[in-house]
Amino acid sequence: MDLDKKYGLATLRVWGLILNFMMNFLTLFGAANYLRGDTDATVMIVGIIGTIICITVLSKPQN
């Protein structure tokens, strides 16, 4: 996967950062709902797993 290839407006690396931001949001939004007792931990867990995947993928240096 070439992270530095442009897809639409930006490179895959930039889209990855945006996706990571969204996953970080899910983590905290899910944590807030879970700690308030409104929902179970599913959203938070999806956010955490998404964040880990994003970081792992984005850590690949440029070829």
Partner: peptide, 28 residues
């Protein structure tokens, strides 16, 4: 001389993730 290290990039990305979370917490 750009980064050629996965380890280094991971550290930078963890720092960015924490900064993202500060911004998200502010909005929430």
């Amino acid at each position: 001389k750009r980064s050629s290290s996965r380890f280094w990039n991971t550290g930078v990305l963890i720092q960015i993730t924490l900064l993202n979370m500060v911004a998200i917490l502010y909005v929430l």
